[in-house]
Nucleic acid binder design. Structure first.
Lengths: 190, 190
DNA sequence: ATGATTTCTTGATATTTGTCAAGAGCAAAA
DNA sequence: TTTTGCTCTTGACAAATATCAAGAAATCAT
């Protein structure tokens, strides 16, 4: 059983085998190499990907700086939601940080799921709410915490990422420079 | 036609009159006075409200500080989504900043809409995506902007709030102290 | 209208974080 | 293996923001 199947099962509880097979059959296993781009900003994002294994980084890059907005790990979806849904140019760039395996669905196939699986909208809604809550927490962390507090919280809950993701990207994700990040780390290790 | 009807119409485009009436009939007009609490943290949030007129502030208050997480203006919904959906204790407190009129629906009635209006899940999804994008933007603003830049952007896009909302709440919403907020304002006016 | 309370502004100072620069360490390419 | 390029750390200094305090202004309660 794949991560995708487990993910869907975890939301539906006991899920009809047929429905599960139907949903999963519309996702295609897609390997991408470290450094490869899943999406470039300005392009239409016409697919939704689920990380079976590996890491994806979602970021914006301008002349002066690069901002890491999100890092998708195993078990997370990755897309530019606004572009995917409203068919606008994508704002984000998505790149693999390591060799990565995705389950990817096109927008056309995505639209079919609702017709094939009656409970699909329920899964969709729960998925969006889950994302919403994560984002809400992140905003709250910026409103209420110092950089060091955010580091501590993130380290406590994502320890394994520190060996897998370049530290500068974690720093950016938490809203600080790599220098500040290093200083905080040094403080914590002493 | 109420704000709620206009809101729903703006998502469905041309909407079946019957469907619109059905949805709207499940929302009850609810006035609340300035200072009144719509929701207290720790309680179950069992309703979803739409702001017909007025202002609601969503915040967390602890011994040391109070963090304003969101301010719902006319045309926005207000709820603790996690509590509403998963029936957990609410994290946020929601209070009226001025006399406010809401269209409020209970969770039980909310569940009925999907059975009565076939396209409801589509509206629901678009609503969630709209919120998602707003949240994404807010996170990005914290990762990539200074407090002053956030102030400028917010002022440009929400000018009318500056006469309606206590400035300390806007400061908190943007992630800065009232002192910093005042200093930035002074700078902008000269 | 008056008094009490709260909000907002401002100054002084402290703290946090960013910028710039350079060196050490690590990873990738040849 | 060596060379090149990139990442991370560290120091010095600058800038942004928070904290503390007090006064002015605005709002609320009577």
């Amino acid at each position: 059983m794949t991560e995708l199947e487990q993910y869907i099962k975890s939301y539906f509880g006991v899920v009809a085998i047929d429905d599960l097979k139907t949903i999963v059959s519309l996702f295609k296993l897609t390997p991408i190499k470290k450094g490869e781009f899943l999406l470039k900003s300005g392009k239409r994002c016409d697919k939704l990907s689920f990380v079976q294994s590996g890491l994806l980084r979602m970021f914006i890059s301008t002349d002066e700086k690069e901002i890491t907005q999100w890092i998708s790990t195993k078990g997370y979806f990755s897309t530019d939601l606004s572009s995917f849904v409203f068919e606008t140019p994508s704002r984000w760039t998505i790149q693999a940080l390591v060799d990565t395996e995705l389950y990817t669905i096109t927008k056309d196939d995505y639209k079919k799921i609702g017709d094939l699986v009656p409970k699909w909208s329920e899964l969709e809604k729960l998925f969006l709410i889950r994302c919403f809550i994560i984002l809400e927490d992140r905003i709250f962390s910026h409103l209420s915490m110092t950089a060091e507090e955010r580091y501590n919280f993130f380290f406590k809950n994502n320890r394994e990422l520190f060996n897998q993701v370049p530290l500068q990207f974690i720093a950016s994700l938490l809203g600080m420079t790599p220098e500040t990040f290093s200083r905080i780390r040094k403080k914590q290790l002493s």
